[in-house]
Structure formats: C-alpha cells, structure tokens
C-alpha cells in the first residue's frame, strides 16, 4: 500500500511503487487536471508540487512522494476563489487549447512563490521546461509579470499550507 497526500487529503493506493505519480493522480484519484504530454520530463504538462516545489509527475514514482505533500492544479484555488495566477491567466486570455496550462500555472505559482517579482530571465529559467504548442509564451510572460507587479489581486491559499 502506498500512502499519498494530495491537496491535503490522504489516500491509500494499492499500486506498483514504481508507477509514476501522474498516473496515480489521473487514473486512481481521478484528478485529471494534471496532463500527460511526453512521459520523459520534456514538456511540463504533468507539473505538480511536492512540498511546494514543482516536479514532473510523469517521471516521479509514487514511492518517492510518500510522506510528502502533493498539490495539483485542483488544489491551488480555494473556496474563496481562484489563485491569483489563475486569475491573471484569465485576464490575459492565455489559454488557447488549454492543454498545457495546468502545468504552466503550477510552474508559475512555484516561480512566484520563490521570486515574487520575477525578471524576464527568471521567467525564461523557470518556464522553459513547459511547452505550449499553441505558442502562448508572450501571454504567459505577461500574466506572470502582472502577478509579480501586483496588477492582479494576490492571495495564495497554499502559502499557509506549505509555509
């Protein structure tokens, strides 16, 4: 049995310990906001947080996250509303097909937590692991800057959760 804590909830799963977290989240917990894109840590579509740090869930075995706190796209908003990064994404009309955006948002949330007002270089660094085939990089950059510069209402329900 594998014990997973995802979005604050504990789950006991009877799965192969080498199974990547991605498939446990999607197929066993039915949290399908986290996406499969490449399976080899090249595209970022599967990005989730482990103890607040972005990881590629497609190459992270479930056994490696036992005892940790996993946060998915479903876990970053609260009953009070959207996370500021999600709101910024709507304001900038970032999503085209939208398939990459859960991963983009998880990477951006982690970046902004680390570096509240990131420079272009910070954004290049933190976001280049996330591919967007619809090419919305300019909008992603603007949305991140809007959050950084306080143009969007900011609050982060995860901040307290992960300290």
């Amino acid at each position: 049995m594998i014990t997973l804590r995802v979005n604050g909830e504990e789950h006991q799963l009877d799965v192969d310990p080498s199974m990547p977290l991605l498939w446990a989240i999607r197929e066993k917990l039915k949290l399908t906001g986290t996406k499969f894109g490449c399976g080899i840590a090249q595209c970022g579509a599967c990005t989730v947080h482990l103890n607040g740090q972005p990881i590629r869930s497609c190459v992270t075995p479930v056994s490696a996250v036992m005892g940790g706190d996993v946060t998915t796209i479903e876990g970053i908003s609260s009953s009070d509303g959207l996370h500021s990064v999600q709101q910024a994404w709507i304001d900038e009309q970032v999503a085209q097909c939208g398939y990459c955006q859960s991963g983009q948002i998880m990477s951006a949330v982690a970046l902004l937590r680390q570096t509240p007002n990131p420079s272009d270089e910070d954004i290049d660094q933190a976001m280049s692991g996330n591919i967007c085939r619809c090419g919305m990089y300019g909008r992603i950059r603007s949305a991140i800057k809007n959050v950084g510069q306080g143009v969007v209402q900011t609050y982060d329900p995860q901040e307290t959760a992960h300290g």
């Binding site: 906001g33 479903e74 999600q86 939208g98 948002i105």
Partner: peptide, 17 residues
C-alpha cells in the same frame, strides 16, 4: 472574454484524454 478559458485554468476542462 472566451467562454472556455476559466475551465482551462482550474483543470476542469474535459479533454478526450
């Protein structure tokens, strides 16, 4: 504002997969 974008920022959009 596009109608489909909110569901694409909170993970609720249901793609084929």
């Amino acid at each position: 504002a596009r109608h489909d974008i909110p569901s694409k920022v909170d993970g609720t959009a249901v793609f084929g997969i």
